[in-house]
């Protein structure tokens, strides 16, 4: 997904847009930006600074600067939860644990090499179960017990799930087991960061109430989820952009920004 957040000097969000990404990052970044400008009722020239983040950050042609999603998430989460110590972000393709002290990222762990423990794991297995991704959370709440998934690999987990289906295990118990598998993997991964409250959970998977519950159980701690868990990275990028501009102004400098043009660019030419 491609997200755009526009903030003003008072840190008020003027527009937020979430659009699909697809293979043509560059062109889509354009469209989502246009949409955000329309919603904010702004001209592109009025935007002081553009920070791009995430996997596609180098494919945003109109960005003034790229900052990694780890730094941006940390900043965004801190804005929403100033008491945050640990942020867990589970998205479609990776899982991250961030240690945040006084709003600054001080350490992190990341799994970006394998679908296990990410949103993709749930996507694949929802498909196996013939369920919609969005329904998984609700279904898991009806579970009376939960299955144990022992395989780390998504493909092998799929085989385990099929074996449970063959045995006639109720769907809610299987789904609850999958949520527990994700939560326990992520908790294991982030243990090195020395987990302390407050814990904040973001990313697309944070919309799944079943995983939120499983994380609480695995951590033995309260887990806070922002109202829009997909947007924290974009919010953080916008805030860091604002801070860069203000710092430059304090020093009496003009921050180098690109010409404000939105062109259709593609690498498929």
């Amino acid at each position: 997904m491609t997200k755009v957040v526009i903030i003003d000097a008072a840190e008020c969000i003027r527009a937020r847009v979430i659009g699909p990404t697809g293979a043509e990052h560059r062109r889509l970044a354009n469209r989502v930006m246009e949409e955000a400008l329309n919603r904010a009722n702004l001209h592109f020239e009025e935007i002081a600074y553009v920070v791009a983040t995430g996997y596609g950050r180098i494919n945003v042609p109109f960005a003034d600067r790229q900052i990694t999603e780890l730094t941006c998430h940390a900043r965004g989460v801190y804005q929403l939860f100033p008491t945050v110590s640990i942020a867990i972000d589970i998205g479609g393709q990776d899982a991250k644990g961030l240690k945040i002290k006084k709003g600054k990222l001080v350490d992190f762990v990341m799994n970006d090499r394998c679908a296990a423990g990410t949103g993709r794991f749930l996507e694949v297995l929802a498909n196996t179960l013939g369920l919609k991704l969005d329904d998984l959370g609700g279904i898991s709440l009806q579970a009376t017990s939960k299955i144990k998934i022992s395989s780390i690999c998504t493909v092998f987990a799929q085989q385990e799930v099929m074996a449970y289906l063959a045995k006639g295990t109720p769907l809610p118990d299987i789904v609850a087991g999958l949520h527990d598998a994700i939560a326990s993997r992520v908790v294991k991964m982030i243990t090195r960061l020395k987990i302390e409250p407050d814990v904040v959970f973001t990313g697309g998977v944070a919309k799944n109430i079943g995983v939120v519950q499983a994380l609480k159980q695995n951590l033995g701690l309260e887990v806070f989820v922002p109202a829009e868990p997909l947007l924290t990275g974009a919010v953080g990028a916008a805030l860091l952009g604002k801070e860069l501009v203000l710092k430059a102004r304090e020093r009496g400098e003009v921050i180098a920004a690109k010409e404000r043009r939105l062109e259709e660019v593609t690498f498929f030419r």
Binding site: Y55, T68, L70, T71, L105, V106, F108, M110, D112
Partner: peptide, 13 residues
């Protein structure tokens, strides 16, 4: 390539 993000984030921190 996947390691680049970690290295960049490390440099940012």
């Amino acid at each position: 390539a996947p390691l680049r993000t970690r290295v960049q984030a490390f440099l940012e921190l």
